[in-house]
Amino acid sequence: MRRMRKVLVHALYYAMERGKLGSHPLERIRWRVPKPAIAVDPRPVANPHQAAVC
């Protein structure tokens, strides 16, 4: 997520340098990186029998 945001921010700064944007639109937005999920839900994970069939 951080990498995608950095790419977007740099693309917007580049557009500002080229004169395509008057101001940086993301400066008005407060954004935080979402916290990752710690627990893994075992329901969607394949059991050994299902994995052997595939």
Rank of each mutant, 00 (worst) to 15 (best):
W31P: 00
E27R: 13
L8W: 02
G22F: 01
Y14W: 08
S23H: 10
D41G: 09
L21W: 04
N47H: 12
V53N: 10
L12F: 01
G22P: 09
A37G: 11
V9P: 00
K35A: 09
V53Q: 13
L26R: 07
P48M: 00
K35H: 08
R43V: 12
P44N: 02
V53E: 13
P48D: 02
R32F: 01
R32Q: 10
A51G: 05
L26K: 06
S23A: 15
M1F: 02
P25E: 10
V40A: 14
V45D: 06
Y14Q: 14
V45T: 09
N47R: 12
P42Q: 01
K20W: 12
K6E: 03
L8H: 11
L21A: 06
P34G: 06
R43N: 11
L21K: 10
P48H: 01
H24E: 08
V45S: 12
V7I: 15
P36F: 00
G19E: 06
H24N: 15
W31I: 14
R30T: 12
R18K: 14
R28D: 09
A11L: 04
E27L: 14
P44I: 00
G22C: 06
R5I: 03
A39Q: 10
H10Y: 09
P48V: 00
V40C: 07
D41E: 12
L12M: 14
S23L: 08
G22Y: 05
I29E: 04
A46L: 15
L12P: 00
K35Y: 03
V45L: 15
A37H: 10
C54W: 01
R32E: 08
K6D: 04
M4W: 05
A15Q: 10
P25M: 03
P34A: 05
M16T: 01
A51I: 06
P25D: 06
R2A: 13
V9F: 05
E27G: 15
Y13I: 07
R5A: 08
Y13D: 15
V9R: 12
L21F: 03
I29V: 15
L8E: 07
R2M: 05
V53M: 02
G19K: 08
R18V: 04
V9Q: 09
I29R: 11
C54F: 01
V9N: 15
N47V: 06
L21T: 09
V45K: 13
M4H: 10
H49G: 05
Y14S: 13
E17T: 14
L26E: 05
P48C: 00
P42F: 01
H24C: 10
V53W: 04
D41W: 00
I29P: 01
K6Q: 12
E17H: 14
R30C: 06
Y14A: 13
P44E: 00
E17V: 11
E17A: 15
V40N: 08
A11H: 13
P34D: 02
K20I: 11
Q50I: 04
P44D: 02
P42V: 00
